[in-house]
């Protein structure tokens, strides 16, 4: 529901660069953290959010590359967004391994 709410907000906003902010809304995080806090407690959830910083950095690199490929190279959105997932994995796990492990 949280995911759909943020998606609906994104659909009605203009310009698209502003609406795009909601593409990085903490919707999945809010839903997951709510469940984690109820089942595992606050300390466990806090540990997860520490790693989430690396995940968000990965998301930044992922969307930055997607922006470049979509606007400058005009590659299909589906192809770009799926093929860049290994980039997210590499950056997120790399940062977590080097700085947060």
């Amino acid at each position: 529901m949280v995911v759909c709410a943020f998606a609906a907000i994104s659909d009605v906003l203009k310009p698209k660069s502003f609406a795009g902010l909601f593409g990085a809304a903490p919707s999945v995080a809010l839903a997951t953290l709510y469940l984690t806090i109820s089942s595992q407690g606050k300390i466990y959830a806090a540990t997860e959010t520490r790693s989430m910083i690396a995940g968000a950095a990965g998301f930044f690199v992922y969307t930055f590359c997607a922006t470049w490929l979509l606007t400058k190279r005009s590659v299909s959105s589906l192809l770009v967004t799926i093929s860049l997932i290994p980039v997210w994995l590499a950056v997120s796990f790399g940062l977590w391994f080097l700085l947060l492990r």
């Binding site: 609406a19 795009g20 902010l21 593409g23 998301f59 969307t63 922006t67």
Partner: peptide
């Protein structure tokens, strides 16, 4: 692509 640029800015907030 413009939407993705917005998401990149939002990810700093994330």
């Amino acid at each position: 692509g413009v939407d993705a640029a917005g998401a990149a800015m939002g990810s700093i907030g994330l």
